Structures are given as C-alpha cells and as structure tokens.
Amino acid sequence: MPSETPQAEVGPTGCPHRSGPHSAKGSLEKGSPEDKEAKEPLWIRPDAPSRCTWQLGRPASESPHHHTAPAKSPKILPDILKKIGDTPMVRINKIGKKFGLKCELLAKCEFFNAGGSVKDRISLRMIEDAERDGTLKPGDTIIEPTSGNTGIGLALAAAVRGYRCIIVMPEKMSSEKVDVLRALGAEIVRTPTNARFDSPESHVGVAWRLKNEIPNSHILDQYRNASNPLAHYDTTADEILQQCDGKLDMLVASVGTGGTITGIARKLKEKCPGCRIIGVDPEGSILAEPEELNQTEQTTYEVEGIGYDFIPTVLDRTVVDKWFKSNDEEAFTFARMLIAQEGLLCGGSAGSTVAVAVKAAQELQEGQRCVVILPDSVRNYMTKFLSDRWMLQKGFLKEEDLTEKKPWWWHLRVQELGLSAPLTVLPTITCGHTIEILREKGFDQAPVVDEAGVILGMVTLGNMLSSLLAGKVQPSDQVGKVIYKQFKQIRLTDTLGRLSHILEMDHFALVV
C-alpha cells in the first residue's frame, strides 16, 4: 500500500459497493488471473465517493441489488447463522422517566444476534452475496479491517462455511474481542490505534497488504460494500417497522461504517417519512454534520465500534436529520445504567446512543415513540467499562463513588512517597548505550525526554532486548525507535489509591 493515498477510480455505471474482489474501477472485475494482476490496485480507499443510485421515491424494481426479506425461524435451526436477525424490541421503562421523557422509549437489542452484535447481519450478508456472485469459493481466505464486531461476525460465518479468516484490528480494541476471535479460529493482526486510516500501518493498510500477498484472499470491505446497508434496509428496518406496527417518530443510532443508519433510515424514509433520524458520533470522530460539531482538541476516545477519521463510502449522511456528539463518560455511564436499571447487557456504544436519545427525544410528546439501536453486548468489555477499576483509572468514576473498604494508605498523596527525580535518556542515544546505562543503574525503564525536557515516551529494558533479539533494531539504532509513546501519567497530588489502580493494569506510571 502506498504512503500517498491515490484516488480510487470510478467506473461508468453500476453501484460502487459490489461485493467481491475490487477492480481499479471499484466494481467486480472478471477475466484471467493475468488481467486481474495487471488491473487490481494495491488498495482502494474506504472513503471513495459513493456511486449508489438510491433515491427517495425511486421504484424498488430499479435497484441493481439482490434483495432479501426477513424469514421466520424454524423450530430447529440448521446452523447458528440462522440465529442472525429477528432481534427483540424491548421497552426501556426507567431511564426515559428518569430523564423526563414523555414518549415511549424502545430498544432494538442487536446483541441477541448469534455473534453478539449488529455486525453479524452485514457479515453474513457480505459472505452470502460474495458466494452468490462467485467471488468467494471453498478454501478462500477472508481478510477484514475491523474494530472487532464485524470480525467476530465474519469469523463466526467463516467457521460454519469453512473459510480461512484473518482479522486486522487496532490495538485499542478489547482483549475479549481478541479472545472470541481466536476461539472462532480467526487469525488476528493488531495495528497502532493512532495510525491514520490511509497510513500503511493502519488496520485498513495492513489488511490490503495481506490481501496482495495471500492468494485467493478477499477483503469484503464493510466500508464500501453495498451488502452492509442492504442488510439493514432489507431486514433490520423491516423488523423495526413490523415490531412497531409502522408507528415510530424517531430513530437514534450510533454511527461507525454508517451501514446501520443508512440502511434503516432509507427504508424508514420510504415507509415512515415523518420519522426523524438521529445520528450519534463520538467526540474525536469526524462523521457528524455540520462540520463545526467535529471541532475539538480530542483525537482519541475509548468507546469502541463507532466514529472514524474518514467518511466511509457506505455512509449516506443525507438521510440523517440531526447529529449529536457523545463523550466517553456519558457513554459508559449510560451503558452501566442500562445494565443495572433495565437488565440490558449492552456495550458502550449503546450507552452513547441512549445518552443522546434522552436529549433528542425531549421534543417528542406522549403517545409518540423513539427507537434506539443497541449494537453489541457487554461480553466484549468485561475488563473495560464493566470494571470499576478501569473506570477509575480512566477518570470516568471517582473514588467516592465506590463504597468498598480501602487499605490505610489509600488516600495518601503520591508526594508522600518522597520520590527522587528519575533517570532520563535522550532519544538520540543508541539502544546499546541505553541498555548499558539501565543495567549500570539497576533500572528496568526510563523516560525519554528531548533537550527541552519534554517527555516523549518510555523505554524499557525488556522491550529493547526483545527488539534486538527479533532483529527489529540494532544496538547502533537510536533509542527513539523503541519508545512507548502511550503511558499513564500521575500527579504528586493524586492518591496512592489512584496509582494502585493504574499499576494493576500497566507496568509503570510516570509522575509529573
């Protein structure tokens, strides 16, 4: 994948999101292997301009796509893939009243899908469409860049269908997702969380590099694949309309690839034109409109599966009536509230959605109805927002919020430890010299600072030695090549209790 991002070429006709291997024109390309080798690009942008032909009021008969309808489940399912879809609609009884809503608040519980998330729908649909058009064949390999849930859905379907599955996901995604993927037989590649989507090191860039190296491999490409919004247009939206008897006044959905909100909203605009569509985008993402909503100094966020630093091709923002931004604290607070007060075992993005819903639905009156999409299960986040310690460490809970008995030293300040200034190293000294210094002084790690004293990161003896043994660096290389740029900081005025929580999850903390 090139470091400079080429513009994806656009073909003359058809839909841009065809499933299957992508040609340089962004659509299915038939021909000899030699032709494909000559024409197939190194990668295709996940934010390529959409060429979708959908228009409100256009006859369904003019759609270029294969459409399906929700099917009634048999008493005995032939395999677990038949437990994807037909998820329950559940009334939220307490939270709406707590925040003064007059309307009825309903939750579409997508964590009841077989793999635990709304992404099971698009995973199965992308595979079925690729099999139907002859792209996927027995023994082929599926590769997908994902925040985890699409990966789980694909790995689940691949396990049943017999495909090899490789999932490329950023490091910030939970260990629970990784464990589930491994249990399903998927191979996992992790990428830096802070890598831009168009960087060769991003999950998108690495996935395309693997595709170019592995024979008979395919990126189904949830960011561009029409099967993504079509899955929701054909099934999720129809289920909502049936469950609500066609009567709903507002739908609120958090947005990642945009397939969920695009597919549902398009069908609702056709069948229930008075329904307002509300999009939820986390602070630090750029999906919301108008652009002024996205202006923030924050560039990272903890909530998973929603928000991006690019506009995915499948996201149709014209069908969203209003956007709201959400933050991590309210997302996790509301997710825990949904679990504790409503018994809905949902993930953090569901918290984002409901946090926005109780604001947006203030305009609705008694007798009206708001539906929220709860995308995934708490299963993926047992060591994250479900953990009091994690919430404390991230600053989303305060010590006084917890009532468990603490040891005698818990409320003492870090400054009472009488710490001395640490050994520091410059980023320009060599790895070999740094190892000598650390061994001589008896230290395992040291902060790396520039000549102005600005902290650049941390270097550890173990990481340097393993990097040297693996051949990633040489003793003569500058130590700046092996620094940890993500590390926890703590102030002298913070409590030892807070430091204790940090050290339970990290090997060190830097006192500043």
Rank of each mutant, 00 (worst) to 15 (best):
V206T: 05
E176I: 00
A157M: 08
T262C: 09
A8R: 12
K97Y: 12
T135L: 14
K267L: 12
E213G: 14
Q243V: 08
A114W: 01
K36C: 15
A207Q: 00
K177N: 02
R209M: 08
G20T: 10
C52M: 00
Q242R: 11
H203K: 07
R91H: 04
A155P: 02
V118K: 07
S174V: 00
H65D: 01
E40L: 15
S32R: 11
V204E: 09
C109F: 06
V118P: 08
I188R: 00
S174D: 01
D129A: 09
E128Y: 01
L184A: 02
G139D: 09
R125V: 04
M173R: 06
E34D: 12
T13A: 14
A69I: 04
D249W: 03
A158G: 07
V206D: 02
K94R: 15
T193G: 08
G100I: 03
G153F: 05
I167E: 08
S217N: 07
G139H: 14
N113R: 01
H17V: 14
M250Y: 05
C15T: 09
P21A: 07
E239C: 00
S3W: 04
K25H: 11
T146V: 05
G139A: 03
P88K: 04
A186D: 01
P21Y: 03
I92S: 05
R132T: 10
C52K: 00
T141A: 15
K30M: 10
L81V: 14
A24S: 14
T146M: 02
E201Q: 09
S174K: 02
C165P: 00
G263Q: 00
K108F: 02
C272Y: 11
V252H: 09
L220N: 00
K25N: 15
K97L: 13
K267M: 14
R276M: 10
R121W: 00
S73C: 13
H232C: 00
G11F: 05
A38G: 13
I122C: 03
T236P: 04
H22P: 03
L156W: 01
P273W: 12
H232I: 01
Q243F: 06
Q55T: 10
L251A: 08
A38C: 13
A71P: 11
E144H: 01
F112H: 00
S61K: 06
A231D: 08
G153L: 02
S147G: 06
S202A: 08
K36E: 12
K108N: 02
I92L: 05
P229S: 05
P12H: 11
S117P: 04
V252R: 09
G246K: 04
G246L: 05
L105S: 04
K94A: 09
G57D: 13
K119L: 02
V178N: 02
R164N: 11
L28I: 14
H218R: 15
N216K: 09
S63M: 03
G246A: 04
G100H: 02
N225F: 01
E4A: 10
T257H: 01
G274H: 12
E171L: 02
E144F: 00
T53F: 08
A183P: 05
R209T: 07
E34W: 07
S50Y: 02
S254W: 02
S73E: 06
F111Q: 00
L220Q: 02
K119F: 02
P2C: 10
K137C: 04
T235L: 11
W208L: 05
L124H: 11
V206K: 05
D238G: 10
Q222A: 01
K39Q: 11
I166H: 07
P41N: 11
L136G: 05
P12G: 07
R58A: 12
S27P: 08
P229L: 01
P70K: 11
R51T: 08
T68C: 12
P41G: 10
R196F: 08
K267E: 06
A158T: 05
G274R: 12
G26E: 10
H218A: 03
L77V: 12
L124Y: 10
D198M: 06
S73H: 10
D221K: 02
L56E: 12
I122D: 00
K267S: 02
R209P: 02
I167F: 06
D47H: 06
K177P: 00
R164F: 05
L220Y: 03
G31A: 11
E128G: 02
R45W: 06
P192L: 03
